[in-house]
Design a protein around this nucleic acid. Sequence first.
DNA 1: TAGTATTTGTACGTATGTATA
DNA 2: TTATACATACGTACAAATACT
Lengths: 256, 256
Amino acid sequence: MPIGQRARKRPKLSDLVVEDVKRWIVTERKQPGDRLPNEKELVELFGVSKSTMREGLKALEVRGLIKTRTGPAGGAYLQQVSLDHASEPLRNFLHFHHLDGHHIYQLRKILEPELAVSVVGRLDAKQLDLIEQTIRLCEQEPRNDIELRAQRVAELEFHNLLADKCPNALLAFMCRFLNDLLRDLMVYKNAWEHRHFGEANLGFHSKLLQAFRDENADAVHRLMTEHMVDAETHMHEMEVHVGVQQLLMPAGRRHA
Amino acid sequence: MPIGQRARKRPKLSDLVVEDVKRWIVTERKQPGDRLPNEKELVELFGVSKSTMREGLKALEVRGLIKTRTGPAGGAYLQQVSLDHASEPLRNFLHFHHLDGHHIYQLRKILEPELAVSVVGRLDAKQLDLIEQTIRLCEQEPRNDIELRAQRVAELEFHNLLADKCPNALLAFMCRFLNDLLRDLMVYKNAWEHRHFGEANLGFHSKLLQAFRDENADAVHRLMTEHMVDAETHMHEMEVHVGVQQLLMPAGRRHA
DNA sequence: TAGTATTTGTACGTATGTATA
DNA sequence: TTATACATACGTACAAATACT
């Protein structure tokens, strides 16, 4: 070991083979949907054992870059990295940091108006209809907890539909991520009990829909900002005693 | 296969064991720094084979939740999920979407002022000194490309130092992520050739430092906004022909 | 419907490398 | 230096899933 020099320890073969596979994908011009060679061929191609190769494939799978299937025509298929594969690690990261409703709305108050304005004029009739449906769902008085919960989910779906049409992929990701945090927080807190919360949202969503139809960017920005400021007050009202980070780590069956 | 029901295919043992380990960590109240049982014990504890166990551990390692060491007192140690472990998957995600300088600055223009205001009054003398050093580094006329590059890195370090003190972990993450994208973009484009870019930055950074010393939140917000608007124009000037997404995927030795 | 071929998934045994005392 | 405790790497055998005939 050379003195005064970082003892650069040998990286694991299973990690090296991951880089090899990535390079192979690039040089072979492979696209999402394309199939990688089968395990036997990969083992020969990269000169490692089966177990090492499988650890490498598992690493690629965890990153969301491949998906494997058994049987004939099975094997490892290239995938587009999904939203979930990008969100989960960020959740894990935040699990080790303090994060509360104030932090979420500090971001939502500036990001949602920016996103909303960016989709003005980009919503076709079909999109506007879908958005209207999320509003209609919240108009009737909920008869039980199931319906109440469905209304809360629909309210967040309103915002996700806007994100679908946002041309800025990173802005869309962030807004969706915040929506997911809020949804899980509400599920955890049984926050859908709070009825007047929904009534306030309903009014803003209706006015926003009209502003989108009118393609009135100024109105959209103003309404969405008011909507977020209002939502934050409701967030505070419901006295969040449990921190957001509590629900991040276990990564259990929240999406059931 | 039941009719009218999703053919829920059996999940892999290596994925199930990951959930088992996560649960074990929670129930055993394990913290970052704590050691997991060794492979042999884990195999017995979870009733799977060695290869399955290793695939599961690899999955945890990729997620940044554990780190393994060889030798006596070696094994799997719990880790806090690092910034890099949260960033990499997001980069992979964005690789499959269009993202350009305009998108980055659309976010930076609203996030950096928000972050800057949030650290007003939270910077101690040591922090202010560090910030001042990044400015000093940019005051001398660079004598070669190395120094020129160092100045560009220092300019981004100015912003990262602010993020260090931001109480909102998610806002800090986002700003740092954008800084990293810009750094890699500049490295890729040899953009540190553009000298007047640096001169403009220097002025804003100096005025911002003074505003932080004065704890003048309004001035900080105004200056940072102007700074971002100005930086975006420089970004456009340098005619980014290559998209940001080109440099995301290979994930090579960028951090060398 | 059943059978067969293909391919991943799981298990196990052994050998090698590495860090600590 | 040697012993020890651990991860890392390899190879084989078999089980399970799935597409095609």
